[in-house]
């Protein structure tokens, strides 16, 4: 089962990269853009068929290694097999 972990900075943590992107978009004329944030995705292939167990295991991995909960939030998505 493929699982996607999306990691984003918590609100309130300075995201200078996002600010640079926003400034750059604005200077290119995309002035309608605001609230840019950046993050990362980690995709795992789990040897697991039960969705809730997969979520549970992934959450554990996030808390131990994948995410620094001091500054980051995460979200777990179960991906379709054929996507």
């Amino acid at each position: 089962m493929k699982v996607m972990v999306s990691i984003n900075l918590k609100p309130g943590v300075l995201d200078p990269q996002a600010r640079a992107i926003e400034n750059s978009l604005s200077s290119l004329g995309y002035t309608e853009v605001s609230g840019v944030s950046t993050g990362k995705q980690i995709i795992l292939d789990l040897d697991e068929t039960d969705e809730s167990r997969a979520r549970q295991k992934t959450a554990k991995m996030c808390e131990t290694l994948l995410v620094n909960t001091v500054i980051e939030n995460y979200d777990i998505t179960i991906m379709d097999e054929d996507s």
């Binding site: 943590v13 300075l14 200078p16 990269q17 640079a20 620094n68 001091v70 500054i71």
Partner: peptide, 17 residues
């Protein structure tokens, strides 16, 4: 050390990128 939790807080990307 902050990743182990022995010290509080975090170290993030420099403001100047």
């Amino acid at each position: 050390l902050v990743e182990t939790g022995l010290l509080p807080g975090a170290l993030i990307r420099n403001k100047g990128l």
